[in-house]
């Protein structure tokens, strides 16, 4: 019973994560300019990767020998080390994803990449950003 429930949950997480990856890529195809595309690119980076890695973590599961050899707490495949590595991978992706996105967007802004659609409503004081090129 608990196993089939876990299996269903892993299914949902894996397929949902893959769906978010595809939606993000489709968004990058459809959105009109660079800055809006970065919004679509965060979808695979956050929930896409998050759901897939969470699903794999549930699948690899835990194996904690709480009560000695015979009576350990065992979930899924019981591969604790792989689960820890997946958790590290997820935390690392969530920590570095925004950093690299920000570095890229800041570089684009400094180089004066502009909106190619109707200009968005600009509330900031330095809206008259000079085009360096």
């Amino acid at each position: 019973m608990i196993d089939s429930l876990l299996h269903a949950l892993v299914w949902i997480l894996l397929v949902g994560g893959a769906a978010f990856c595809v939606i993000g890529a489709v968004g990058m195809l459809r959105l009109p300019d660079f800055y809006t595309r970065t919004h679509a690119a965060t979808l695979p980076d956050t929930l896409g990767a998050g759901m897939i890695l969470l699903g794999l973590m549930l699948q690899s599961g835990l194996n904690l020998p709480l009560l000695g050899e015979g009576a350990s707490l065992r979930i899924g495949d019981g591969n604790t080390l792989v689960t820890l590595k997946l958790l590290t991978l997820l935390l690392f992706l969530l920590a570095t994803g925004p950093a690299s996105t920000h570095a890229l967007v800041k570089a684009a802004y400094a180089r004066g990449i502009r909106w190619n659609q109707a200009s968005p409503q600009d509330d900031s004081s330095d809206s008259k950003h000079a085009d360096p090129d």
Binding site: F34, A41, I52
Partner: peptide, 23 residues
């Protein structure tokens, strides 16, 4: 069309590669 669009795409491609390896 700009180099930044390309870097953005390659960046997401890299994330997908990580997921591909794990899967």
């Amino acid at each position: 069309p700009t180099v930044f669009d390309r870097i953005l795409a390659v960046n997401t491609f890299g994330t997908m590669t990580i997921l591909l390896i794990a899967l």
